[in-house]
Write a protein that binds this DNA or RNA. Sequence first.
DNA 1: CTTAGCAGTCGAACATAAAGAGTGCTAAAA
DNA 2: TTTTAGCACTCTTTATGTTCGACTGCTAAG
Lengths: 333, 333
Amino acid sequence: MDDRKKRILQAIVDEYINTAEPVSSGSIARRYNLDYSSATIRNEMAELEKCGYLDKPHTSSGRVPSALGYRLYVNELLKDDDISIEEIKYIQSKLETRVNEIEDLTRITTSTLSEITHYTTVAVGPRNNMQRIEEVKFVLLGKRNLMAIILTDSGIIKETIIKFDEDITEEQVNTLTFIFNNKLMGKPLEAIDKPLEEYIFSQMNYSLNVIKPIMQQLKKVISEETEYLLEGANKAFDLPEFKSLEVAKNFINILDTKEIMMDLLNTGFANDINVYIGEENENEKLKDFSIVTFKHKYKDKDLGTIGIIGPKRMDYSKVISVMKYISKKLNGE
Amino acid sequence: MDDRKKRILQAIVDEYINTAEPVSSGSIARRYNLDYSSATIRNEMAELEKCGYLDKPHTSSGRVPSALGYRLYVNELLKDDDISIEEIKYIQSKLETRVNEIEDLTRITTSTLSEITHYTTVAVGPRNNMQRIEEVKFVLLGKRNLMAIILTDSGIIKETIIKFDEDITEEQVNTLTFIFNNKLMGKPLEAIDKPLEEYIFSQMNYSLNVIKPIMQQLKKVISEETEYLLEGANKAFDLPEFKSLEVAKNFINILDTKEIMMDLLNTGFANDINVYIGEENENEKLKDFSIVTFKHKYKDKDLGTIGIIGPKRMDYSKVISVMKYISKKLNGE
DNA sequence: CTTAGCAGTCGAACATAAAGAGTGCTAAAA
DNA sequence: TTTTAGCACTCTTTATGTTCGACTGCTAAG
């Protein structure tokens, strides 16, 4: 794989990302100043195809990058810093918004990312079981409703309401608070389990009627799907690939069955931008799409993962540049 | 408008709802036992068209109901009780799930409705400003975070977190709790406004640094969009009308810009099922869709509105029957 | 090693024809 | 007066053929 082949491949991918049309040897020779004739480029393209980096829709058509071609492009040929001053300013202004809840920061980041890149953006909260409990609070609402608040080290606050069939006293609440904090402070969320239930039951002399519903609801909340955010689903429909009904249908399906995206977002390495290109994905429905994800943190607190989904012909340079910038900015310059 | 015309119109609408193909006089004569020849039906169809109840895609094609036709059908010709025993059992089993938070009930209702009808379903919470405050609680989280909890008479609980730049004392929290409850109990949510802020400021001898952020955040929370739920967006894409790219694009657009649906859901009469048919909607984007909404209540508490969006060729009988049943069931038999 | 030139391939766009479904109208039947 | 059989006419759909243009692949010359 010599240098000239790479330059040509890069030109083809760039051109295809811009036009969404199969790229001909002539257009490359004309528009990119590679100083070779279309015939030479044609020969190189034939070889690139033989190596699997390019595909041809039919015998006499131009070339289209294959998944392998995009992969090489992403790994080796990306333009760095593909982000303008205006965009930087816009991102800065957005991220400076003061937020009270950490979820708001995720929401702002997600929508900003979608606005800048013009792709659909998805976010999930951090994996619950990684978080450690800092404090548990119980607040009596009326006589038969109890709100439980769990503060974690990631700054995410889980709260839930538990309904009872009998009245709860302030004293009970105090005991509960003491025992839960005593037992759980510093522990991961998954420490809320059966053994804990038994321990608490042994410590408190109330009926199971009080503890059972609390444990049940707490377990439900911590096992619950983390928040799932979706921004700019309609943006995709302006892209030429969505002329195909099958593509459009798959897209909606992917977004609607949250598990597909959630799985993908929960894979991937921390501290890194992960790129999944078309057929590289196991899921058949993702074959026409690429997804770029990154775990975002704020002052080293895990805030979950944000992903961008678009056509394989995605503007990887732009997307990755913007993600890198936002990631750096969030983590403190 | 004689009876026979109505029977024929009903047959045409029923047939079109089933097949999504223009309906011919012959198919009506064959499949519905109206005891008239296709020629007679043809004559009636011509008149129905003249009156505006039917449309013809082109000169020699069958007829398609117009918005006016659907309207007459919905107002006068609906089959009652178009819901099977199995469906009733399924709905019952779903609605019996015990829930702790009122939002869960909305979620279950929304997804059940989507599963039974096979249409996309949307829900919004009740209009905030209608609700009355029953209690306000403040809970100190750490030293500089305060959680505010507002209980309303509809059972919806709003909670939010307020961040401070200085430490807050328990004493301050107690004073805040006393003043807020004293001033707000029984008042509507919109009582949280500028005059309240001034009153509280006059009553407490702390700096504005404490009250300002609280009021700001509370106002934000109560003015915030109420929850917006979406179920079964992909179901729509199996319908033949979604072969048209324009229709599909409009659909995604409608769902993505929440305001369109929110506006519609917040219109409409309480205690009633509201039907909006295609061009009847002011919004141009809705011209190909119909929406059926109902305000749902649980034991007379307002839980917001649920709506179904589908093609104009929606199975109105089924949708309305299911809604009526669920509505009755939620409000206690 | 590069490139000009040209034959060959394929898709897109357009025109044409035939088949089929449905209507509207007329005139006969009930 | 109402209903219906029958038929001409209209319009869509599908199939088929044709042309045009954009590319490629290959050969042979530079």
